[in-house]
Design a protein around this nucleic acid. Sequence first.
DNA 1: CGGATCGTTGATCAACTTCAACGGTCGTGG
DNA 2: CCACGACCGTTGAAGTTGATCAACGATCCG
Lengths: 191, 191
Amino acid sequence: MSAIFKQHLQKFISISDEEFEQILSYFKLITVSKKENLLLEGQVCKQHYFVLNGCLRKFFINEKGVEITTEFAIETWWITDNKAFEHQTESPFNIQAVEKTTALTIDFHSQEKLLNDFQVMERYFRFIYQRAYAAAQMRLKFLYDFSKEDGYYNFMEAQPQFVQRIPQYLIASYLGFTPEYLSEIRKRKRS
Amino acid sequence: MSAIFKQHLQKFISISDEEFEQILSYFKLITVSKKENLLLEGQVCKQHYFVLNGCLRKFFINEKGVEITTEFAIETWWITDNKAFEHQTESPFNIQAVEKTTALTIDFHSQEKLLNDFQVMERYFRFIYQRAYAAAQMRLKFLYDFSKEDGYYNFMEAQPQFVQRIPQYLIASYLGFTPEYLSEIRKRKRS
DNA sequence: CGGATCGTTGATCAACTTCAACGGTCGTGG
DNA sequence: CCACGACCGTTGAAGTTGATCAACGATCCG
């Protein structure tokens, strides 16, 4: 299972089998079942998750009591509330399993230690954050550029893997509109 | 002027004066006047900018021909189209000076070389991208959480430094609505 | 002084939300 | 293995939010 993580690391940096085993020892392997929570709103965000298989999502609850999903993570994606993780403060987010999920998890202090002990991990995380930041910038562009309807078609094309496995109300939530409106868009397309 | 950059580096890593001079040699110092362009849509995004003073913005032009500003950068902020920079591909964005601006600039290959030559710069950029990603995540949350009106009040509170120096139509563009609507919000507040 | 740029106003219009209700399906307990 | 309840997607009507368009006044700058 953790071979997935090894392959992912080796896409960015070169490490020996021995080094990998040492690096892996900073992590814990966890499995959570569908709807199980890994972080609750108001808690300090202690962990950074690397999904090996399954799917996690990050969401918050707005003043109307509606869940808004801001992020999904599937195989080989990292997920956490980075701001709360970095400062070890309370998070406004929840992290929950969409499906049964296996992940590696590392707490803040272990991650700091890992970065100090392995220079090459600075390089790895520099890549990871750089890519994640670039992706977030493009996501912002899409939000500004597209109407909600076009955003849906764009997402369908760009991430068909999600549309297969994720319930529609979560997709609507992620795209920033209501399930009813998603229904309407789909009806329009059909006719 | 470049002392600003030195101070910024030293907030994250420790370097000697000598090292700093070497690092600085990878950059060029530029000054641009108001409305001058540093990147045009369709060009390969070759440069990464670190603002020493003044203000840059990144924007694109939507299908209706309207400029949408997705990012500002003032003193000690980095700015580029990270996706296009990383892959050295054409960018859909423009980068333009809002005011007369002085910045350090580094091209992609120099940045790669800098990262290879100075281990400590991997750490510095890991911090930079980590913070930038966390900030982008919070920005996304605000976009999902707030109505446009609330988004304006929130921005006013969080970034009063902008509201002073940036024309209103740019603020409206950044917040994702029209100047007319901003006018309406302001009128409502007044009464 | 004269033109371009910026903020404002008000009327009309489109995109999207809210609410209430209904039918299908899926999983769980009896 | 069936029945029931919870959950999910869908519909349609009415309501909001914010966009569009055209016009005007103020200000800045050459």
